[in-house]
Design a protein around this nucleic acid. Structure first.
Ligand code: MN
Ligand code: MN
Ligand code: ZN
Ligand code: ZN
Lengths: 146, 146
DNA sequence: AAATTATTGCAAATCATTTGCAATAAAAGT
DNA sequence: ACTTTTATTGCAAATGATTTGCAATAATTT
């Protein structure tokens, strides 16, 4: 249960002559601890508490590597203000979708088999081959509806 | 048919003491001509042909204003390379969705009533109020499947 | 035509992210 | 353990899209 990401990453590194460093360990850890969808900066701030020498570049390099390996996914949620910062998702890209409360910025993950249907119908109608689907709902969570 | 955007924009300007300038006219025009989902830079390049004095800031200012007024929408399509440039959509945010061919970068617009269902089911289950839905499919268009 | 002020062009600032490079430290070889 | 190899890091500078301050310009009003 705990350390799934770290184990997978370690395995990939081993198989390629890569090195599991203390900074990578901490970044992996933080991805599991910070459940939400943290930005590189948030991960940096969190890990910095326990390792003040960590550099933001290392955070980015590690995240991009994990992304390439398919262990995490980068997303842009279209917040009112900040359209531009990537958020990182410890889960694989393909198996869930997101609701964003535009007021408190909380994120709810969900899935729905109808989404598969949408994909199938589109494929059938256009002969496009659909590899992945991104669904993002924006609105107000129960709390923020007042 | 032609000039819908320009007409709406002109009307809004009129009602607020704004001014319909030549640069705004050209930018609005280009949004209708360039059917695809152009970036600010692409709009800039296009309009520059007919007005070499136009400045990129003006393009951005106009686009952001149109976005605020709800006449166009800004989107980020999650292309492999460039995750960071906004693309502008002459259509309103709410009434259609997109398929992106990750090979040739072409965009196909579509809609599907099931998406409304997904939204309704989510609302019912979580008591969240959903304001907007973004669906983006990534894959290969018929041509690029070889 | 003169006055008013919304809008522009220009240059500089922002801000998230990336990159080059020399210093550091895993892992491998001895 | 000691040395070698080289993957990885920290640091500082670069990038690239977008934004912003401000003086100059041009629509509109008077
Ligand atoms: Mn998620
Ligand atoms: Mn569109
Ligand atoms: Zn909320
Ligand atoms: Zn294609």
């Amino acid at each position: 249960m705990m350390g799934a990401l770290l184990d997978e990453a370690t395995e990939i590194l081993r198989s390629r002559g890569g090195r599991m460093t203390s900074q990578r360990k901490r970044i992996l850890e933080s991805l599991e601890l910070l459940g939400s969808h943290p930005s590189a900066d948030e991960i940096f701030a969190f890990v910095s508490q326990s390792d003040p020498t960590l550099n933001l570049s290392t955070v980015y390099r590690t995240l991009r590597w994990l992304e390439q390996e398919g262990l995490i996914s980068a997303r842009h949620f279209h917040f009112d203000e900040d359209r531009r910062t990537d958020r990182f998702d410890a889960a694989s890209p393909i198996d869930h979708h997101h609701f964003i409360c535009t007021e408190c910025k909380s994120v709810i993950e969900f899935d729905n088999r109808l989404i598969g249907e949408v994909k199938n119908q589109f494929s059938r109608q256009t002969n496009c081959w659909v590899q992945s689907v991104s669904v993002v709902l924006y609105g107000l969570c129960p709390n923020c509806q007042k």
